[in-house]
């Protein structure tokens, strides 16, 4: 696994909404291929904006953003879909369609990117198995716990087999037990070579899993540290007493 080459590079990036309102201010950040990065900070600190700059949901107003050697400033609207196929995006609200079963949610996304029915029927069970949700494939989102919904959303994010996964507040609606389970899933994906960027304000979980922590405040990076994961018992301790959040 190659970790040294800059995979994502933010160079003095601003996102300005007006002369006085900024989403990001002078962000400089380099992420290597295969890294697991937590973007931490309070609501409004800019962590979601940073992810949206990468997905091109938000266009930066100044500076330079490189992704896989490609300057995002040069991307035109027609090529945004191609960019997004290189990344899996897990939105904060899961984004599951309530009137479709779990497998249909994943299948629908695959159909939207041009896969045939045959390809969908082959790939969906594999994807659901990969995130340990295959046993709930025929359930509707409302019948799932928060953690299961999040796994469904991750399965959908993996349909293009992307080398990068972006998760915005994936544990926001989860209890500690499910949060730990979800992070273990993301760790597993990271071990398989996927670069993972997680925006979260769930500091207990972040501290248990460690890795690289980039802390943002008011659109600026105030801390960028690499922390080794704490002992597994701590994660297990977090899980003790957790309740179902279905």
């Amino acid at each position: 696994m190659q970790r040294s080459a800059p995979y994502i590079q933010f160079d003095r990036v601003d996102v300005g909404y007006s002369d006085v309102s900024y989403g990001l201010r002078g962000i400089s950040l380099t992420i290597s291929r295969g890294e697991f990065v937590f973007l931490c900070g309070l609501t409004g600190s800019g962590k979601s904006t940073l992810i949206k700059v990468l997905t091109r949901e938000v266009k930066h107003t100044d500076g330079r953003v490189l992704f896989d050697g490609q300057d995002l400033s040069e991307i035109v609207p027609e090529t945004v879909p191609a960019l997004r196929r290189k990344m899996g995006i897990v939105p904060q609200d899961f984004g599951l369609l309530p009137n479709k079963k779990v497998w249909e949610n994943v299948g629908y996304a695959m159909r939207a990117v041009g896969r045939t029915r045959r390809e969908v029927s082959k790939a969906v069970p594999v994807l659901l198995e990969r995130v340990n949700i295959l046993h709930r494939a025929d359930q509707y989102p409302k019948e799932l716990s928060g953690g299961e919904r999040q796994r469904g959303a991750i399965a959908r994010a993996l349909i293009n087999n992307p080398p990068l996964l972006l998760a915005d507040e994936p544990t926001a609606n989860l209890d500690p037990e499910h949060s730990v389970g979800l992070m273990q899933l993301l760790e597993e994906l990271n071990r398989q070579g996927m670069t993972i960027i997680v925006a979260t304000h769930d500091m207990p979980v972040v501290e248990q899993f460690g890795r690289r922590i980039v802390r943002l405040e008011f659109g600026r990076i105030v801390e960028d540290v690499r922390q080794e994961p704490l002992i597994e018992e701590s994660a297990e301790a977090l899980a003790v007493g957790g309740s179902e959040d279905a």
């Binding site: 609207p77 879909p81 984004g95 369609l97 939207a112 990117v113």
Partner: peptide, 16 residues
């Protein structure tokens, strides 16, 4: 809107 957002997130073409 929800379906369209998902289509956009997973990289569906504008024409789709």
């Amino acid at each position: 809107r929800r379906e369209m957002r998902i289509m956009e997130l997973v990289g569906a073409n504008r024409r789709t």
